[in-house]
Design a protein around this nucleic acid. Structure first.
Lengths: 167, 167
DNA sequence: GCTTGTCACTATGATTATCATAGTTACTAT
DNA sequence: ATAGTAACTATGATAATCATAGTGACAAGC
């Protein structure tokens, strides 16, 4: 392997929409990298450090995400020549999936008290300021919540973990 | 391996909610099995046939899903003794994630005309009858859409594929 | 009462992906 | 000239997956 996803029974041509996205999203590395990109962490080394994935895996998956049109590779410096990765519109639309994952986890994946109190990440609607909790539509203004609409505030415990990871 | 998920860098204790669910959902087999369970296909052989996964993988993942409290193993016949798998509330809540995946695919994952015309699966809100398209809240009555609220009608092309798979 | 069939699995060996670690390239800064 | 930084590539050990075949418990037909 060196150019993307594992080669298993191929589901990319199934007509089932869940099967199709499962080909892309049913991969731990991809989900973690998308998380980083959605949070605006675009540089290779940052992604590798925050996800704990080896550079070979990060490299393979980023290439695949670019090939799939989910991400774009851009030069952010000419000398020295350096590249980073940005989500395309197709990639940004995956926010909904990761947000649903986050909501599920906040409700079902923690022991009581594990995150201090309150959620692991608190999300606030940028346009109206309401704390959205784990809602799909803003409890403050009723708007649908999509890419770019929310501002996340990690709990102290999660912040500490993130600092430890990149140190 | 024989008792669940691959043993990679462990993320199940990360405080990040996306990381935590990625440990569960970042696996093609798990997503496909959840799709089957959400569609009410509960028997082992049906799941194996519809997903195209080998029985060893199906077995390992179902065990893990039961251990995680996402699914439950029930006897549906005493003689002969036969078991099938049901989603728990924790499992049913994953509907939101798979529905987000479906919505993303319908918008981004098909070539024009690939599904005939219209979506690969048409969803109708059970309580008000509206076609929900790819909305997060019902365009007919404004209700939030969750597990059990929708009735799916696969396109002719998808139906044909499903029949071919189990034949 | 013996064969065939069904269903939920388990066993096995070849193939393929992942992990940890180290190394490379192309520059900048001291 | 040496050290540092960022984005990777290379390598070998380990671990997961795939395809295929087989098992155990029963039912149904001849």
């Amino acid at each position: 392997m060196e150019d993307g996803l594992p080669k298993r029974a191929d589901l990319s041509d199934t007509l089932c929409p869940v099967g199709r996205s499962a080909e892309l999203l049913g991969d731990r590395a991809v989900l973690l990298i998308l998380r980083e990109l959605l949070f605006g962490r675009r540089r290779f080394e940052l992604i590798a450090a925050n996800t704990g994935l080896g550079p070979q895996l990060v490299s393979a998956r980023l290439k695949m995400l670019v090939a799939e049109g989910v991400a774009e590779r851009r030069a952010y410096s000419e000398r020295p020549l350096r590249h980073d990765y940005w989500l395309t519109d197709k990639g940004k639309a995956l926010f909904d999936v990761l947000y649903a994952m986050r909501n599920w986890s906040e409700r079902w994946a923690y022991e009581p008290g594990e995150t201090g109190d309150g959620p692991a990440i608190r999300y606030v609607h940028r346009t109206c300021g309401a704390d959205v909790g784990t809602a799909k539509i803003c409890p403050g203004c009723g708007a649908e919540l999509g890419y770019g609409d929310l501002k996340g505030e990690p709990s102290l415990a999660l912040k500490a973990e993130q600092v430890a990871r990149t140190a």
